[in-house]
Simulated scan of single mutants.
Amino acid sequence: MAKSQETFNKKEKEKNRLKKQKDKKEKKEERKANAGKGKSLDDMIAYVDENGNITSTPPDPNKKRTINSEDIQIGVARQEDIDPATLIRTGTVTFFNESKGYGFIKDVKSQDSIFVHVNSLKTPIKQGDKVTFDVEMTAKGPSAIDVQLAK
């Protein structure tokens, strides 16, 4: 006698499929029973009052005020242009190893120690020199670029 081709797993999947189908049909019937024939246009309209809140009553025309479209700011306010001269920092070379080609500069304003590599030098420097430089953020932290002796 041949064995049935229908396994337990197939039976379970079929049961679940039929149960989902039945639940879906019940939900559809429930929605039909509870739904009205639709609302009128007046019931669906929402108003915005003078404070920007959504209400179901129309706003009072006496409280209406006019707004100039140029006064509306969308997004972030414009920043003033930055003077390039303020971006150039000054500092003192606290350590510089000429054989290895790197060192550190101590910023005058922030007192931060900033890494400097020989490839970012415009003029040769040594320990104790006053220098001007720009700062670039790298994966390992701030690094000085365009380093040259201060005038």
Rank of each mutant, 00 (worst) to 15 (best):
M1N: 14
A2E: 15
A2G: 13
K3Y: 10
K3E: 13
F8P: 12
F8A: 14
F8C: 09
K10P: 05
K10L: 10
K10Q: 14
K13P: 02
E14M: 07
N16T: 07
R17L: 11
L18E: 14
L18K: 15
K20G: 04
Q21G: 12
K25P: 07
K28I: 08
K28W: 13
E29G: 08
E30H: 14
E30N: 12
R31H: 09
K32H: 02
K32Y: 00
N34R: 15
N34H: 12
G36V: 10
K37A: 10
G38D: 02
L41C: 06
L41W: 10
D43P: 04
M44C: 12
I45R: 15
A46T: 15
Y47G: 04
Y47L: 01
E50C: 05
E50G: 03
N51L: 06
S56N: 11
S56M: 07
S56I: 15
T57S: 14
P59C: 05
P59M: 06
D60H: 10
D60S: 07
P61N: 01
K63R: 06
K64I: 10
R65G: 03
T66M: 07
I67L: 05
S69Y: 08
E70L: 11
D71E: 09
I72E: 02
Q73D: 09
I74C: 12
G75Y: 13
G75D: 07
V76N: 11
A77M: 13
R78C: 11
R78T: 14
E80K: 15
E80M: 13
D81C: 08
D81R: 12
D83C: 10
D83R: 03
P84E: 05
A85K: 15
T86V: 12
T86F: 08
T86W: 08
L87E: 06
I88D: 00
I88V: 14
R89C: 04
R89A: 00
T90I: 07
T90N: 09
T90A: 04
T94L: 00
F95A: 07
N97K: 04
E98L: 08
S99N: 12
S99F: 02
S99H: 10
S99C: 01
Y102K: 00
G103I: 06
I105K: 00
K106T: 04
K106Y: 06
K106E: 06
D107V: 07
V108S: 14
V108C: 07
S110L: 09
Q111L: 14
Q111A: 13
Q111K: 13
F115G: 02
F115M: 03
V116C: 03
V118K: 00
S120I: 04
L121R: 03
L121D: 00
L121H: 02
K122N: 08
K122A: 05
T123R: 09
P124A: 02
I125Q: 01
I125M: 01
I125W: 04
Q127L: 05
Q127S: 14
D129C: 03
D129W: 06
D129H: 02
D129P: 02
T132P: 01
F133L: 05
V135N: 00
E136S: 10
M137H: 11
M137I: 08
T138F: 00
T138E: 01
T138G: 02
K140R: 09
G141S: 06
P142L: 12
P142W: 06
S143W: 00
S143L: 02
A144Q: 03
D146R: 10
D146L: 06
V147F: 06
Q148S: 08
K151P: 12
K151E: 07
